[in-house]
Amino acid sequence: MGVLKWVAMGVGVLLAVPASAALIEGRVVAVADGDTLTLLDARKRQHKVRLTGIDAPEKRQPFGDASRQHLAGLVFGREVRARCPKKDRYQRQLCKVEVDGKDANLAQLAAGMAWHYRAYGKDQGLFDFTGYALIELEARYRRRGLWADPRPQAPWDFRRARREAASGWGLGGIPVVGKTVG
């Protein structure tokens, strides 16, 4: 009986939202892109929220605007509940956002408007991690949204390429032609 108790507790830890997670409820007043929004709470305080578990195309990427519009259609002007276990380096709340009891993060994946951000999977419970991965696979299979593109570029690759181009270094640390190396 003791082993079952430990297994049950372990599963509970994997599936649970951390107890220290902040719960923010309010109206969405802005949608910056397909994974970032601004929430106004009952005290009229604004919260910059980054949706966890997903990474949407950047504004300058193909499907960047479509992703933002899809998220706006889901949440803009609506009351939402955000479960936010931590903040990112930009001090945005990292949250799972629910609108009418539905997971908006998951809806972005299902519509093919974002990638499952596996690199930060340790921040998700096992249930969410597995569900998000499966929903992304289904969107890919059905060629929804950005998956209609034969070679979609992941946003983290897009950002890295832009950083390297701005620094004068190409992919893989090879200097860009025409740039001087100091």
Rank of each mutant, 00 (worst) to 15 (best):
R92Q: 07
V97P: 02
L94H: 04
L94G: 06
L94P: 01
P62W: 03
P62H: 00
F63Y: 13
K59E: 08
R151C: 15
E138D: 15
Q108E: 10
F76K: 14
Q153R: 15
A161M: 10
A114L: 08
K122F: 13
R60W: 00
G101L: 03
Q61S: 07
D103T: 00
R118F: 11
V75P: 09
D157N: 14
R68L: 09
V99H: 14
D65R: 05
K87Y: 11
P152N: 13
D88S: 09
R142P: 05
W115P: 00
D157W: 14
D149L: 12
W115Y: 07
D123G: 11
P85T: 03
D123V: 03
H70F: 02
D100Y: 05
R81Y: 00
Q93T: 03
P152C: 11
A139R: 05
R68F: 02
D100W: 04
L71W: 05
K59D: 09
F158V: 13
W156R: 14
E136T: 13
R143P: 06
L71P: 01
A148M: 02
V97G: 11
Q108H: 03
D149I: 13
E136C: 08
A72P: 01
H116C: 02
T130E: 06
G73C: 13
D65S: 01
L134T: 09
M113T: 10
Q61M: 06
H116R: 04
G112H: 12
W156Y: 12
R160V: 03
A110D: 08
R160G: 06
L126C: 02
C95R: 01
L126T: 08
R92V: 03
Y120S: 11
A161Q: 14
E79N: 06
K96I: 09
V99I: 15
R92D: 07
R81I: 06
R162Y: 10
T130Y: 11
E136H: 08
A148F: 04
W115N: 09
R83D: 03
R140M: 04
F158W: 15
V97M: 04
Q108K: 01
D65Q: 03
G64L: 13
Y120K: 04
L134R: 15
Q93R: 04
R163G: 03
